[in-house]
Design a protein around this nucleic acid. Structure first.
Lengths: 203, 203, 203, 203
DNA sequence: GATGAATGAGTATTCATTCAT
DNA sequence: GATGAATGAATACTCATTCAT
């Protein structure tokens, strides 16, 4: 049992890397088993189908994301820093880039989309708790917190997902919009600017 | 030449319908030619590849979208109405629904994504012109108009694409965010609420 | 040893049910072990191969058939009744139907055929003994009894195996043929008609 | 069109030979295309599936059988000779043997069974016409002709299908049964004995 | 007696594309 | 302009069997 679990974990890791770098649809079972050094039968011993494996890969990834987010939440940071920190930590392309600089979007669409939906459902409540703290502290002033959080997630995931290079103007507007959506004083989220510098020269 | 063009147009229309209802990847060339009643060779006489055909399908669709948007722009409407009208007109799912009520997202991802990107690039300048009018009229107060417009597009396309049923809270927050992103007085975009009622009962 | 034998018996029973309802070829070893709640290794501890298991399943079934036939032979019945009783008792579909009404023939062909051959070899001598009694009693008048018995078996197994609905004409002709093959007086086997009524409405 | 049809015919012939000699299930598509010297795609250009090809193979074979039977019917023969001639002509094993002496039954079951059913449906009416002539001529005396014909077909196909060597006793009983089933005078079908001699030494 | 992880040859089917006519 | 026969690499999945523990 122990042994089988470890093996499975290993296969998920390998597949995750391949899915991210070449796309789920462009990664064949043959390629996975070759990379893993196992037989076809072994693959189907652990996974009922390629699609079910994708679900497990995503599940594994989400667990990791959730843990990271919770860690940020517990860290000694201001509420805006927590929110931004969590958002930054889930930008999928951050890790994807690490694995494969030449990431082509189209082949990743399916996985990207599946992850995005489930990730949002997972992260919205966590971020909402942080935002509620912000309201309590008088930093934010707004109702419908989960809906507002989701919007900020939508914006950030779309703007900063790596396929549109973001200009200073985009960042300014994003900061402005974030502050206003949460009812924060101008400047509250300004520190984002500093965080965003680095990856800019990619691509 | 004239005749050939018409034929091609026809094929694009047929393919468009199939791509939208079954997804690009799930539509085989065989199915297209059968639906069109032509031979395999004829297909490849008109299109270099299936992918190139997709590009042409999208191009054709975008032309139509742009025309519709320009028409709204020329119409006798207030600036906020123009902006909302254009945004509403490009919700891809609006047309897709017409063609196939049971549209499943995953198979449409590739086309959807390709369309979205190019549609935004096309529509942002048009909407920006409208927004500039709004600024001139004192309705809006903001800089970086194209960036702000793009954000509003991102939000609306994600929130209202039909796979998340939108609650009143979502609409309220969207209206609030839109007003604040454009620097409009509260209530300026409130009329959106009325427009959004109808499709709600679809799902 | 005792325990092992019982276990094996149990497995044969389970497999028999599955073979009959889904067909031998469509029943995988995986399905058998899951139904039996044992491990793969255990299966191959008891059986050298799936095919060998089939042989054992058939053997087990034949034993049961032979016992039933002998019981009918010992019963207090007229010779024609004995013969018809034994034939009726071996109609494989009779039991199969009990297990799975929706039995489709093609998947059962292999097993059906194997059983049929061995069943005939087993039952022909038994029936022949009954028929010899009939000759002795003056009911039948014929030579080559085993050959004649086999023909009657062939006819009945083909006509009444459930996939051809049998009409009254078929039954009449079968009765007539049976009587003539055995050299019996007309009417000797007429009682068959009554027996055959019931299953007719199955299909 | 002409060319495609010929090609298809050719493939059916090749497949027929393979199905008969190795069994349908044991003949892979790969083997067929290799034997035919065509590409995988070509195979699926002509046939939707392997199973559908089987249907066509059988259809082709049945056409041939029917033609042969009709020819016998038109020939200048006595009614009993016609009937026996037709029955002899359809013994599948006759041709199968020609193609592959080492015919193993189990792998042929599916095809054999499918053919048998359709062949009977096809041949029963033809033989019935001949039998009716026999009645008219006073050679036979019976009702329910199609049912009786079918029984004779069942018997002959089972007795003479090559896997049970037929003894003189079997032949005698078959002749006797046939005569009685049709209400013919003893000796009417005796000529069968002569026909049956030859193939006996096979196997 | 019993387990379950590992095997790998085998299978049918798909599909965008080519090209001689 | 148009045809349709031909291609062949690619793909996901099955399953009886083995064997170290």
């Amino acid at each position: 049992m122990k042994k089988g679990e470890r093996r499975k974990r290993e296969l998920l890791q390998i597949a995750y890397g391949m899915f991210v770098s070449k796309g789920y649809e462009n990664t064949s079972v043959d390629e996975i088993i070759e990379a893993a050094g196992i037989a076809k039968g072994t693959y189907y011993y652990y996974f009922q189908s390629k699609e079910q494996m994708l679900e497990e890969v995503i599940g594994m990834m989400l667990e990791a994301e959730a843990e990271k987010a919770e860690a940020v939440l517990r860290a000694d940071l201001s509420v805006p820093e927590k929110i931004v920190g969590i958002i930054a930590s889930i930008q999928p392309e951050q890790q994807e880039r690490t694995i494969d600089e030449a990431l082509h979007r189209p082949e990743n669409l399916l996985m990207h989309d599946k992850i995005r939906g489930r990730l949002f459902d997972l992260i919205v409540p966590i971020l909402s708790r942080a935002a509620e703290d912000g309201v309590r502290e008088g930093l934010f002033d707004c109702d419908h917190i989960p809906e507002r959080i989701r919007m900020i997630l939508i914006l950030s995931s779309d703007l900063f997902d790596g396929h549109n290079p973001y200009t200073p103007a985009v960042i300014d507007v994003f900061i402005d919009a974030t502050e206003k959506i949460l009812g924060a004083r101008p400047g509250t989220m300004g520190f984002i600017r500093a965080l965003v510098r680095a990856p800019q020269d990619v691509q």
